[in-house]
């Protein structure tokens, strides 16, 4: 009581800390134990790395890992490029004194994909891109394709284009949202200074704007990569049966396999969490180092 009266801050955050400890770290810890074959409530207390060994020796795992990397990498790159391109279009519009209402209208339109849940985005792309989907039917109607099954397979395809396109559509606005405020802080007067000293718009972008937004861009790329690497909904909807992306592969192992597969599923989750944590740490380190320099003298 006296602690409360004194206003001990630790006590006030205790419920939140307990919640995180129990449900996040608790779950993680339980998963870790089970991945090593330890299930205390089942009186199974023998430590084993069998699940990891079997997983790492399985061709399915490596195929799945490769596909997951490819889909995440391409989605991240495409959304990164599209996001930065759009942010720069808005920035140049502001720099050249275009009507600011038009720019803000574009900005708002570009933000809409952010409010659509990933699952809904998956369905939307499924309906749009499958061979019996809207685009294929429109193409058939206008005579662009002879038969609707001549339309290229873009969803549930082995390369993962459906997933890549959906992620790009969803994540490019996120990248724009992350870097546009940084670009917006660049003084118009800096552009005037740069012009007087012999720089044109292209040189200004490459010498001033890009170095200033690079840290924010890199951090957002890392976030997108980490997310697409471990997200479940879109690969579940738009992926193929084999090879599956790691999160789907883990889900299937967990729900459809036996007891042994369950340990493998959890081992897979631990590997996913480990890779994501490494990426997160790397992103933090890079952005911390860069942001320190970038933030200097902004005001």
């Amino acid at each position: 009581m006296s602690m409360l009266q004194k206003g001990n801050p630790y006590l006030y955050v205790l419920p939140a800390v307990l919640f995180i400890l129990i449900f996040f770290f608790g779950g993680l810890f339980q998963g870790l134990l089970q991945s090593f074959g330890i299930t205390p409530y089942n009186k199974d207390l023998v430590f084993t790395t069998l699940a990891y060994q079997e997983l790492l020796q399985s061709a399915d795992f490596w195929q799945s890992l490769l596909l997951t990397f490819r889909v995440s990498f391409l989605s991240t790159m495409l959304s990164g490029l599209l996001g930065i391109l759009f942010a720069f279009i808005l920035f140049i519009m502001a720099l050249k004194g275009y009507d600011s209402n038009t720019a803000s209208l574009f900005y708002r339109i570009f933000q809409y994909p952010l409010v659509i849940p990933h699952l809904a985005a998956g369905y939307l792309f499924l309906l749009l891109l499958m061979q019996s989907g809207w685009i294929s039917r429109i193409g058939y109607h206008f005579g662009w394709v002879e038969e609707i099954h001549h339309f290229p397979i873009l969803v549930n395809d082995t390369f993962g284009w459906g997933m890549i396109l959906t992620y790009t559509w969803k994540e490019a606005p996120f990248i724009t949202l992350m870097i546009y405020p940084v670009l917006f802080r660049i003084h118009k007067s800096w552009y005037e200074v740069a012009r007087l000293y012999g720089s044109n718009t292209r040189k200004f972008i490459s010498n001033i704007a890009v170095p200033l937004i690079l840290p924010a861009w890199l951090s957002s790329l890392f976030i997108v990569f980490a997310f697409t690497f471990s997200a479940f909904e879109i690969p579940y909807l738009l992926g193929v049966t084999y090879p599956r992306l790691l999160p789907v592969y883990s889900f299937e192992l967990f729900t459809h396999g036996g007891w042994m597969e369950r340990s493998q599923s959890l081992a897979l989750n631990i590997i996913l969490a480990f890779i994501t944590a490494i990426l997160g740490g790397l992103s933090y380190k890079i952005s911390k180092r860069w942001l320190l320099n970038e933030r200097r003298g902004w005001e």
Partner: peptide, 19 residues
């Protein structure tokens, strides 16, 4: 164009590039 005029300017704010 201003970039070809070979003029320089010092503004009210230093406007140095922070990075």
């Amino acid at each position: 164009l201003p970039e070809k005029r070979q003029f320089s300017m010092v503004f009210q704010q230093p406007l140095l590039f922070p990075h």
